[in-house]
Simulated assay, not measured.
Amino acid sequence: MDDFSAIVTYVKRHIQLTPEEEAFYISLLRIKKVKKKQFIVQPDFVCNHRTYVVKGALRSYLIDAEGQDHTVAFGIDDWWISDFNSFFFRQPATLFVEALEASTLIQISYDDEQLLLNTIPKFEKFYRILAQNGYANLQKRILADISLDAAGRYENFLQKYPLVAARVPQYALASYLGVSHELLSKIRNKRVKKS
């Protein structure tokens, strides 16, 4: 149980589980350890797992036709990450999901998640809550992207995700904010001079 205590605690923040339900859930989970720069999802392959980050840092990103990468999301301790479009709709992934540091993950396969939902229907509520939170955060990000300049987006990110900002490389953060590495360096330097 100790290996799965973090994810069980996460789930129990949203739904109550009997000991039997908890044991069944755990039986469907798999621990995966990845090295820095290792991919857990790659474009053109169907994403078969929903991934919970026990310890570590990952990012999902795409590469456009010009070869520019665009970070879509980060996942650090106690967060979820995947190519959800591929996972939910069983289509080839469009995103890379890469470890930014050596990480310990817990995964559930698509088929096992369907079995879980059919066996313990209250997990529908759990995944609905995850989806609602994800959608609300996505909307906030879109609004920040269209209403704030680069410095404002950086400040917003620092206020909302200080732990992420401290752990991810500057190139990945610049990619997430939609700015060049050089512009982010200037914004950071200007911020340091002000304080």
Rank of each mutant, 00 (worst) to 15 (best):
M1C: 09
D2Q: 12
D2C: 10
D2H: 12
D2N: 15
D2S: 10
D3F: 08
F4N: 00
F4P: 04
S5P: 07
S5D: 08
S5L: 01
S5H: 04
A6F: 11
A6L: 07
I7P: 14
T9F: 14
T9A: 14
T9S: 14
Y10K: 13
Y10F: 15
Y10N: 14
V11C: 07
V11Q: 01
K12I: 00
K12P: 10
R13C: 13
R13H: 11
H14F: 11
I15N: 04
Q16P: 03
L17V: 01
P19H: 10
P19W: 13
E20I: 07
E21F: 00
E21L: 04
E21Y: 00
E22K: 00
A23S: 15
A23I: 03
I26M: 12
I26P: 12
S27H: 10
L28W: 00
L29Y: 03
L29E: 03
L29M: 03
L29V: 00
R30Y: 00
R30H: 13
R30E: 14
I31M: 11
I31D: 00
K32T: 13
K32A: 11
K32G: 04
K33F: 08
V34D: 09
V34A: 02
V34L: 08
V34E: 07
K35N: 08
K35L: 03
K36R: 08
K36D: 05
K37F: 15
K37T: 15
Q38N: 10
I40V: 14
I40T: 12
V41I: 07
V41C: 04
V41N: 00
V41W: 01
V41H: 05
V41T: 14
Q42H: 01
Q42P: 05
Q42R: 06
P43A: 03
P43L: 05
D44R: 05
D44C: 08
D44G: 02
D44H: 11
F45H: 14
C47A: 08
C47G: 05
C47N: 15
N48Q: 15
N48L: 13
H49R: 05
R50S: 05
T51F: 08
T51M: 04
Y52V: 09
V53R: 10
V53L: 14
V54K: 14
